[in-house]
Design a protein around this nucleic acid. Structure first.
Lengths: 158, 158
DNA sequence: AATGAAACCAGATGTGA
DNA sequence: TCACATCTGGTTTCATT
């Protein structure tokens, strides 16, 4: 799969910023005809470069005021599958990353409050047999939280 | 700001899954007229419940194959502003969270490879005067990575 | 708040160049 | 890739309830 060219990258930047930008506007910015933009955007979708278009929702508007990072650890190798199956189906878990270091996995969890976080740890994490230890960090504030990827290499890149 | 009612929450779930779902389809699912759906969606945007619609891009398609979690720590209180100003403008930093525990901040960083991660730590993090220590975790895999919020409380919620 | 109809506008498609 | 025309279908508005 060839990497997107310069024009594709600009289209991706624009569509990451606003997924409903009209093709006419895209065409104006990148300096192509609307039909060309249409074909490029279609191909970016077909090739899986654009994986979807999603509405972003304010967590606070849904009462989800608490963000937490939960590290999870175990020793027995058979724990992993049960753990992953459980977190996959759990909407409160936004992210689950297998990480290097002292812990097995890192979870990003969004809930209403500390009471619900306590319930989450008891009902979801501790309910998985074999989990031996967890460590929970509370997020006090998030100065930056985006999924927008850099479409061009930074100045400091080798 | 009143929390969204049951119909709004279903609209939010649908639009989080696919931000371009036609209003006719939304209307069919929730059992309202298209014009009613249109007004609800418009108000959800006006009230800031829906903060935007964004295309999701595959990191691998852009060659961003390495995800890392970087903890950052310092002692002097004047470091924070410089640090936040620097990471705010840095596209490689997807998330920046103020966290409880032994560290000041947690960063989620996406780069091409370990060489670029090394450059990031040198050019971005260490370039901020006063930063005393960092710890970097490499993400080996991400079984789950979504921004889709739960629109209904889980069964285990108190 | 919800509705149906009408008006408007954007996306998709096909042609020839 | 483009310009153009066209078709289709979604979005938005409005008068009404």
């Amino acid at each position: 799969m060839a990497e997107p060219d310069a024009i594709d990258r600009r289209l991706l930047a624009l569509l990451q910023a606003d997924g409903r930008t009209p093709h006419a506007e895209l065409a104006r910015v990148v300096g192509l005809a609307v039909s060309s933009v249409n074909e490029r955007v279609r191909k970016l979708g077909e090739r899986g470069v654009i994986t979807g278009v999603h509405a972003s929702v304010s967590p606070e508007a849904l009462g989800l005021d608490l963000l937490a990072v939960v590290f999870v650890g175990w020793s027995a190798p058979d724990v992993e599958k049960r753990f992953l199956d459980r977190v996959a189906e759990e909407p409160a878990v936004l992210e689950c990353h297998h990480v290097t270091g002292a812990w097995n996995y890192l979870l990003k969890v969004r809930v209403r409050n500390t009471r619900m976080l306590e319930a989450f740890l008891a009902a979801v994490i501790k309910s998985v047999d074999g989990i031996e230890r967890t460590e929970t960090l509370i997020v006090l504030s998030s100065p930056k939280e985006t999924a927008t990827l850099a479409t061009d290499p930074p100045a400091w890149a080798g």
